[in-house]
């Protein structure tokens, strides 16, 4: 079992391992970064530091739309805000038993919902790769 923050993208639900989550915050005003590729929604500042905000929906192929909150994730020195509709709760999710869609470690059925368990390092790799 892994403790995960459950986040909502429209009707879809994804889990982010708490080990990678630094905080959940309101998405402040974004400044676009021309040339940063399609997966970067922009740059915001949080506690005096700059933070790139990632279009999680586009990366995952989930329904796209404006998002109000960000889940700040970390992997080593890399840090990004994942744009989501809401962070709903922290719950212990079982390990996925089979590898699943891109950028996830698979999916699990939990309390009647299908939840994609995000692979944060792979997500950030994909963002890095798409930054021209």
């Amino acid at each position: 079992m892994t403790d995960c923050v459950r986040v909502a993208l429209g009707d879809e639900r994804y889990g982010v391992a708490v080990a990678h989550v630094r905080e959940v915050a309101e998405q402040g005003e974004l400044v676009t970064v021309p040339g940063a590729g399609p997966h970067i929604a922009g740059l915001c500042h949080l506690h005096g530091e700059l933070l790139p905000v990632v279009r999680l929906d586009r990366l995952l192929g989930a329904p796209t739309g404006p998002r109000r909150r960000i889940v700040v994730v970390e992997d080593g020195a890399r840090r990004a805000g994942l744009a989501v509709d809401a962070a709903e709760e922290v719950e212990a999710l079982p390990e996925p038993d089979a590898p699943g869609e891109p950028l996830t470690r698979g999916s699990v059925l939990h309390e009647g919902r299908l939840i994609g368990v995000l692979d944060v390092p792979a997500l950030l790799d994909a963002v890095t790769a798409s930054v021209t």
Partner: peptide
């Protein structure tokens, strides 16, 4: 402020 490791490769 640095743009951070994720955006550092963006040129310009």
């Amino acid at each position: 402020k640095s743009l951070g490791p994720l955006l550092a490769p963006v040129p310009g």
